[in-house]
Nucleic acid binder design. Structure first.
Lengths: 165, 165
DNA sequence: ATAATATGTCAGCTTTGTTGACATTCCAAG
DNA sequence: CTTGGAATGTCAACAAAGCTGACATATTAT
């Protein structure tokens, strides 16, 4: 653990450093989304579809409400995306067994194929970045990102993460 | 420097870890923009205005073309944002001295005040995250982000960064 | 003179978010 | 067994912020 107290060098907390961090986030997020975006624009889908597919893939059988909460959008906005994905046969929406009001979402084979395609593209960049930066940098990267999340989002993040601890 | 070769433990490069990194970026970016977004939605501005204001503040006198290249949008899109900022007296656009085709962009006092307000909100979160994670984590965070950028964006990032090295 | 550059602007389109209203289905509490 | 509330779907209208294409203007470079 890094010490956070007294004698520590606090130069990493100057406004200038913080501004650089803000810019790094901005530029990096652009890179982060660039590869899947390129794939998506060749079809009739956008980033919103990618996000839905990603989280359905990560939590098969998740309900619409849960997905809503993860994605942080309105049900109308999500519904529009989900409808096209169901119509196009990428997502299957099954009525809940115990509670029939709920819809449980699954990727079809075609949906899974697209997920893999998008996720591969994104992971290639992540893997290269991770490898170039090294394991310690990656640990730091994740620590800072986790601290940057809203508490609610952090819970979602940790819930999904608890797959391999 | 962290070693990148042979005997190293490569568990940080598993697909599962990479997926977690992808989700961390997604959730963290939401947190990253949340605070300024809350301020912006009380006025007639959005995230696009914030970005313009941020980079004009960082590089006073920058040209429209340079800003275009940093933000990665079309001139029509930027122009819409810039026009409202100039109309509202937050940004000043001065005809270039040596090349009169160029417009150099500056924040007015009012623009600077808004920049500070937005940037303060964003930095509070960054500072807390940085402090909680510690200096080494921050170094790793920035190393990974830098690796994640497109080469072109990395050049912009480094150009701005070279203010305090 | 002519070509290229930097900028601004008009019009129209797309994606993805928002509200508000309303219907349906179903669980659960009284 | 009725009724309230929850989960979902859907319609309409709207806004922010991207995009393309076309065109005008001023200025600089060749």
């Amino acid at each position: 653990m890094t010490s956070r107290s007294s004698g520590d060098d606090l130069l990493f907390l100057t406004d200038e450093k913080l501004r650089q961090g803000i810019e790094a986030m901005f530029f990096a997020y652009r890179g982060f989304t660039a590869d899947p975006d390129r794939i998506l624009e060749t079809m009739a889908y956008g980033r919103a579809h990618h996000r839905a597919i990603h989280f359905i893939s990560r939590s098969p059988g998740t309900t619409v409400n849960n997905l809503l909460s993860i994605l942080g959008v309105t049900k109308q906005s999500l519904n529009r995306v989900l409808r096209t994905l169901v119509e196009d046969g990428l997502v299957e929406s099954r009525v809940g067994k115990s509670d029939k009001r709920e819809r449980h979402l699954f990727l079809t084979e075609a949906g899974d194929a697209l997920e893999k395609k998008l996720s591969d593209a994104q992971r290639v960049r992540m893997r290269t970045a991770y490898r170039n930066a090294g394991p310690e940098a990656v640990a730091g990267f994740r620590a800072v990102l986790e601290q940057m999340m809203d508490a609610k989002m952090r819970r979602h993040y940790q819930a999904i993460r608890e797959k391999d601890v």
